[in-house]
């Protein structure tokens, strides 16, 4: 474990706590893409198949359980909680995310560390996570004004994988045999997708103005 990865995991956890706070405190999920949340739940379920077979550390196991439980709880809430589901922007959340599923799965069949069930699904989860934010970013552009908690949520979500890039650089310097091309290239793509969001987030922070994404 290194400071970059730890900060990355904490940033990821903070993003999830912000989303839970928004949904719990405002009983609303306006501005949140259910499709992105469903994709994240799938990312965790397919990535943490080794939850009961490979024990890495208490920290690793606990975080995996937290990520799986929170992502499923958010999807459940957005689908079934009477107040929350009413605030879901169904007519704006129209990104065809099934294409993202298919593309990630096909790529995982081609590019993986080993052609084994768990490894192909692990690669699938890596590719899927890289593009899972797209429905959310499209929804933000369509919904115009972004409320603070939603803006913070997306910001921390983007920042976590950026910190992981520093983690991979650090691990490479420590051990040149350490190569995680799949995770690293995918992480770069994932972070790049946030580029314009980060730009408008920085502008709104600098001008102390409301976060506005151009339509």
């Amino acid at each position: 474990m290194n400071i970059f990865r730890f900060l990355g995991d904490m940033t990821h956890l903070i993003s999830i706590l912000i989303l839970l706070l928004k949904i719990y405190a405002t009983k609303s999920c306006s501005g949140i893409s259910l499709k992105t949340q469903e994709l994240y739940a799938l990312v965790f379920l397919t990535r943490y198949l080794d939850l009961f077979t490979d024990f890495i550390s208490v920290y690793n196991t606990v975080m995996k359980l937290v990520f799986i439980a929170s992502s499923l709880a958010i999807v459940w809430c957005m689908r079934n909680h009477p107040l929350v589901r009413r605030s879901y922007d169904k007519q704006l959340d129209t990104f065809r995310h099934y294409f993202l599923l298919l593309a990630s799965f096909l790529l995982a069949l081609l590019l993986h560390e080993k052609f084994a069930f768990q490894e192909v699904l692990w690669a699938f989860s890596i590719y899927l996570e890289a593009v899972a934010i797209l429905p959310q970013l499209v929804l933000l552009q369509r919904s115009g004004n972004v409320d603070n908690l939603t803006g913070q949520y997306v910001f921390f979500l983007g920042a976590y994988r950026a910190l992981y890039i520093f983690n991979w650089i650090y691990r490479y310097f420590i051990d040149p045999h350490f190569t995680r091309w799949i995770a690293c290239v995918s992480g770069l793509v994932q972070t790049a997708l946030y580029a314009d969001f980060f730009y408008y987030y920085f502008i709104s922070w600098k001008n102390n103005a409301k976060l506005q994404l151009p339509a």
Binding site: R47, D50, D54, I56, N60, F67, R180
Partner: peptide
């Protein structure tokens, strides 16, 4: 075996 790379990252 040790070549079995375990994914130790979240």
């Amino acid at each position: 075996g040790e070549d079995e790379e375990v994914h130790d990252e979240l």
